[in-house]
């Protein structure tokens, strides 16, 4: 059994770290499925190949986390049907069904990757050791996904700013609302179906984390991502202020 992460020594930390891995693996599998579905929405064969490649990259992230969790003897619970992850996936599929590539890209590479990059970085810094290294290195790779989409979305904004901002606003409220409910200090839509027992959020302090800071950092990165795409601040301010909390 791997013992490189000193924080796994008590039952509380064992449980929290197990939950952190469960959430990460579930999220990666959702990402993998989303990219696979995204490939369907694209006509250009090169972009299709790129989407499949991305799906494979998310698969390898899931595999990396799974492998580590097994080695460390963590109790992992993967559940793609959990309340929040399932809802996010449904939102994605609804846009994929309409072959709305831009909306799909925004959900997967801006909304989900902002949360992944920020939360993996926070978790990585808090856990330290081998587990920390793993979270941080995957955060780095996710950041590339985020940067990649920014280019495409900027281009889209250049073509028709008003239509683009309207579309992004709609996708924001459809999808970001779910993540805001999920990441609120208390789950706003009930149990996530991934964590053991009650939600891990109350126990994050055992590994030096707190849910409010993690959520705040994720929202901050998301806001910066919106800035980089070129969404006016007066819009993003309203979008963030109107989220459930």
């Amino acid at each position: 059994m791997k013992t490189a992460t000193p924080s796994l020594t008590t039952s509380e930390t064992f449980s929290v770290v197990s939950d952190l891995f469960s959430q990460a693996i579930t999220g990666e599998l959702i990402g993998m499925s989303n990219f696979a579905s995204l490939a369907e929405t694209i006509d250009d064969y090169e972009e299709k190949m790129e989407a499949v490649e991305h799906a494979d990259s998310e698969r390898s992230h899931a595999e990396g986390f799974l492998h580590f969790a097994k080695e460390a003897g963590l109790q992992v619970n993967i559940n793609l049907e959990g309340e929040y992850w399932r809802s996010v996936r449904e939102q994605f599929l609804a846009y994929a069904g309409k072959r709305d590539f831009i909306a799909c890209l925004f959900i997967q590479e801006v909304i989900l990757e902002s949360f992944a990059v920020s939360m993996y970085t926070d978790v990585g810094d808090a856990l330290g050791g081998e587990a920390g290294k793993l979270f941080r290195s995957i955060a780095e790779e996710e950041k590339e996904h985020l940067d990649h989409s920014t280019e495409i979305l900027r281009e889209e904004l250049r073509k028709d700013a008003t239509a683009f901002v309207d579309k992004i606003e709609e996708v924001h409220f459809n999808c970001m609302t779910i993540l805001a409910q999920f990441s609120a200090t208390t789950d706003l839509r009930g149990h996530c179906g991934v964590c053991h027992g009650s939600c891990m959020k109350a126990d994050l302090h055992h590994v030096g984390l707190d849910s409010a800071t993690m959520r705040g950092n994720a929202l901050a990165l998301y806001a910066r991502a919106l800035d980089n795409i070129g969404i006016p601040g007066e819009k993003s301010m309203v979008w963030i202020a109107q989220l459930p909390a």
């Binding site: 705040g216 901050a220 007066e234």
Partner: peptide, 11 residues
């Protein structure tokens, strides 16, 4: 819990 995290932006 939210406001201090928002990066500078035009309101």
């Amino acid at each position: 819990a939210i406001f201090p995290f928002i990066p500078a932006r035009d309101l």
